[in-house]
Design a protein around this nucleic acid. Structure first.
Length: 751
DNA sequence: GATATAAAACCT
DNA sequence: GGTTTTATATCA
């Protein structure tokens, strides 16, 4: 036993603050100190929940005391803490916030104040503790003694019910007998029933039951991929793979069998999907295949449900976890395999709060855990494919569809010289023929709203967002102009806001306008639109998707969201209204994104028994992203994109880090970003790094939620050089506390 | 992020 | 002179 005169602990605080904090532990709490538990500590004038990192040897100054230790058992272990620290370092984010983000939301206590009035009506500020999701418990009743003849009425019915059914929960009884707590209390009092209070889980799937199915036979390609994965699994070492399989090539079956092999080894599996709300059928497939516990984590769950799923995982009651990006932090032990499905999806990137990319961190977690990591995609990132070619990832190819489905007939339509018509003749004809033939049509346009900008014919003034400098998109349904960056809105003006001229024109097309034009062209057709505006709220997707599935919708117009996740067997025609919207984005990945999008859209056509047709309208019909996509030729696209990336000096030939510096004060943000840029240049010179420091530049979005943001772009040929500059920078850069700094890092292939 | 204090801007 | 808004500093 150590004979300490005092016990000091190191605590991470979930606030945007650099460094950790130290507290004294009162003697009666000494035995309860375990790293990974939460503690309630005084912080300034408030009390906050912090995370115990460990004990610390003597620390000279006066310290405050820990108020309370909040957990009986630690919430994270040493391995998990190592992972959190890695993330905090890599993304330059405070450790406390990383831990908070990794743990289920809503469990922390925070002190708040409330204005009340005392007996004399004088207002007083009272402090109270809020938050702290708790374990849900429920009372379970069981028949104890049935000889009570005195019991009649509802009490009698309940006793009879308990005799036939055995144990029942309070909610089950309430469902059957209405409110009966008084009756139950009396039954307990006369000892006719026993009551026991137990923890229960809020299970999002408790109503559904799942049948069972058996593994499918693998074809030669799948067998080869599975063989490689199985062999890697048995070594028990970190092994990353790219599973490059065209739509319908049976990637999921490879995942399932690899996971089965993992479970057989006594290990667990983590499956990440871009947006689980869109893929309920995937969950069903897992539930039918496996008998073990399966936990599902996604944004649709309430905090309580999520906490319950988290606890199930922590207790080892689930061996498979399926979820969106945040599921990467599931407290699974003995992880044997991590699957990142559709690894190219941008939704793996979290761009608010703690910035991270779950696709990248899957590799990191896999490395720390010694697991097999499978990045699966029909259209992998250029960086992933390049890493595979360089031998840093195992490359598994599934080039053929499982059932020999023909690829849809795909045509590029040259829209040049067509005076901005929404639909070219061949597309209109194809839509008409498809409608008459009873087929469904998908129309794809990567732009929501009605018109993309408003311009004055007299003075040329264009309506822009006062915060972001981007043009405001007109949304007819709301009668307002909306900024798609920051959601700033403005009622639609009737006169030019600058010169008061009456000649204002709406230009550029969004899905809202396409929908209107389709309705005019085909008044007899049933037309629906699916984008972020029409699918707000819970179940918004499901409603539209159901309409397509049951055939009640003839023509569906939508943004990229219609290209993902769901299979539409009845769709025989797909029209891309304009491939240029995504091709011309000011982003070095625009060609890659367009190729992926068009390839995905093509995959939506003719998956049933009928052959499908795809028409792509564009002003750039010879662009390699489009010609390769319509020819289903990944290699052609890949070769040209690699050449382009090499010429312009972007990933995978360089690595990028965007440092965002923000503050509520414009002057501070500006000054801090200048200081930071200057410091970075000095480090670069002193350490002789071949890193480009670009900036400070105003971010395209000037002010976001009250904060002014500036950016510094770091570009380097060697990943390690970027790490060195960041490391030095963190060590010496002291910024005012109102300034925040985060790093946005491009896909990791350091492994 | 919340809070306290200081400085600047605004009010009549 | 008084009140509101904005900037800055601190938290163990």
């Amino acid at each position: 036993m150590p004979t300490l005169s005092r016990h000091i602990v190191e605590v991470a605080i979930p606030l945007p603050l650099q460094g950790s904090f130290h507290y004294l532990v009162p003697q009666h709490l000494w035995p309860l100190v375990v790293p990974g538990k939460r503690v309630l500590v005084p912080f300034g004038k408030r009390k906050v929940t912090g995370y115990l990192l460990g004990s610390s040897d003597n620390h000279q100054n006066e310290l405050k005391e820990v108020i309370e230790i909040l957990d009986e058992a630690p919430l994270f272990n040493a391995d998990e803490l190592e992972f959190y620290c890695w993330i905090a370092n890599y993304y330059l984010h405070p450790l406390g916030e990383v831990i908070k983000m990794a743990l289920p939301a809503g469990i922390n206590l925070v002190s708040k104040t409330r204005l009340e009035t005392d007996e004399d009506g004088v207002p007083v500020v009272t402090e109270f503790l809020a938050g702290g999701k708790h374990v849900r418990t429920e009372k379970f009743y069981r028949l104890r003694f049935d000889g009570e003849e005195k019991v009649r009425g509802k009490g009698r019915e309940i006793l009879d019910h308990l005799r036939s059914e055995g144990e029942c929960s309070a909610s089950q009884l309430r469902e059957r007998f209405g409110s009966c707590s008084e009756v139950l209390n009396r039954l307990v009092k006369i000892a006719a029933v026993t009551v026991e209070e137990r923890e229960v889980y809020r299970d999002p799937f408790h109503h559904e039951s799942f049948g069972k199915d058996a593994p499918l036979p693998l074809n030669a390609e799948q067998e080869k991929a599975f063989g490689a994965l199985h062999a890697a699994l048995e070594t028990g070492k970190f092994a990353p793979f790219l599973l490059h399989g065209v739509t319908g090539s049976g990637k999921t079956e490879v995942y399932l069998q690899t996971i089965a092999a993992t479970l057989a080894e006594g290990k667990t599996a983590l499956v990440l999907v871009p947006e689980i709300a869109l893929t309920p059928q995937l969950v069903g497939r897992f539930k039918r295949r496996f008998d073990c516990g399966i936990a599902v984590l996604h944004s649709g769950l309430s905090d309580g449900e999520r906490y319950d799923e988290w606890r199930r995982i922590r207790r080892g009651e689930a061996s498979i976890v399926i979820g969106a990006r945040s599921a990467l932090f599931a407290p699974l032990e003995r992880v044997g395999v991590i699957v990142v499905d559709e690894e190219h999806e941008a939704s793996y990137k979290q761009s608010e709060g703690v910035r991270y990319n779950a696709r990248d961190l899957a590799l990191v977690r896999g490395k720390l855990a010694g697991a097999v990591v499978i990045l699966g995609s029909a259209t992998p990132l250029i960086t992933t494919l390049y890493a595979a070619r360089e031998g840093r990832l195992g490359y598994l190819r599934l080039a053929n569809r499982v059932r020999e489905l023909p690829m849809p007939e795909t045509t590029l339509l040259d829209a040049r010289g067509q005076k901005g018509a929404t639909f070219l003749e061949p597309l209109v004809e194809a839509m008409r023929a498809n409608l008459e033939g009873g087929g469904q049509t998908l129309l794809f346009l990567n732009r929501r709203g009605f018109a993309t900008y408003l311009v004055c014919q007299d003075c040329g003034h264009v309506l822009r967002c006062p915060n972001c400098e981007v043009t405001l998109t007109y949304h007819r349904s709301r009668g307002r102009h909306v900024c798609h960056y920051c959601d700033f809105t403005l009622p639609a003006p009737t006169l030019c806001p600058k010169c008061q001229g009456p000649e204002i024109t709406l230009l550029g097309r969004g899905t809202e306008r396409v929908e209107e034009e389709v309705k005019e062209l085909f008044p007899e057709a049933s037309v629906a639109r699916m984008d972020r505006d029409t699918t707000r709220g819970k179940g918004g997707h499901a409603r539209v998707l159901k309409g397509v599935e049951d055939g009640s919708i003839d023509i569906l117009i939508g943004t990229q969201m219609i290209a993902k996740g769901h299979d539409f067997p009845g769709v025989t025609l797909v029209g891309v209204v304009s491939a240029d919207a995504s091709l011309n984005l000011p982003d070095f990945r625009s060609a890659e994104r367009t190729f992926q999008l068009v390839t995905q859209v093509i995959g939506r056509a003719g998956r049933g028994d009928r052959a499908g047709r795809v028409l792509v309208q564009t002003l750039a019909p010879e662009h390699y992203a489009l010609t390769a996509a319509v020819a289903h030729d990944y290699d052609a696209f890949y070769e040209q994109e690699i050449v382009y990336r090499r010429d312009v000096g972007y990933p995978p030939f360089t690595h990028l880090v965007a440092l965002t510096i923000s503050s509520t004060s414009h002057t501070q943000a500006e000054k801090a970003s200048e200081d930071a840029a200057e410091l970075l240049r000095r480090i670069k010179r002193d350490c002789q790094l071949r890193v480009e420091v670009l900036g400070p530049v105003t971010a395209p979005l000037g002010k976001v939620r009250g904060r002014f943001r500036w950016q510094i772009l770091l570009k380097g040929k060697e990943r390690m050089e970027l790490h060195r500059i960041l490391f030095h920078f963190r060590a010496v850069y002291t910024h005012p506390s109102t300034v925040r700094l985060v790093a946005d890092v491009d896909p990791v292939e350091m492994l």
